[in-house]
Amino acid sequence: MRTILILFAHPRFEHSVVNRALVDMATGIPNVTLHDLYEQYPDYEIDIHLEQELLLAHQVVIWHHPFYWYSCPPLLKQWIDVVLEYNWAYGTKGTHLSGKYIFNAITTGGALSAYQKEGRNHYTVNELLAPFEQTAALCMMEYLPPFAVQGTHRITETELQDQATAYKKLLTYISNEKNDLEVLKENTFLNDFLIKTPQHGQ
């Protein structure tokens, strides 16, 4: 069994419908630790030691957050700033995270079509996530494509349920040690992978 750490960051979670559905699906899966950063650190004083212990205890890490201003909410950025210490996460002696898998699970208000060269946002989500990809690379982690629920401003109840179920399937797939994670890299979105392989190993 692979252990999964979801670093969840949402400054106004009580008003979020989509993330509520995703989080509800994620809770209760064995080996998945849901770590609600805004609930744990309302004053932004992150317990660095605790966070590093958590990272060591898990094999796969997910930055789960809404995609605010083409990036993550400030507490998650603060987490990256203070937890990924020099000579612990990166640098000559910083090898503690090497080989672990990491990816972003995000929600965007705009639809997929808006995140195109011709669209309103001019860049794709994958391009905009480059800082996270490079952060992972510096820590010698394996960065996977994002899981993205897009167009949340207009999402229907059925679409939302489909996406939430997809998230659960993805987590279940990852948590099974027999499943290969390298194949996930071939997708643009992890959502696509789930569509391609409807019957995944348990």
């Binding site: 660095i48 700033d81 203070v82 210490e85 020099y86 000559t92």
Partner: peptide, 13 residues
Amino acid sequence: SDHAWDSEELKKN
């Protein structure tokens, strides 16, 4: 006591 936003050690290296 933490090294958040502290570039001293980076510089040293």
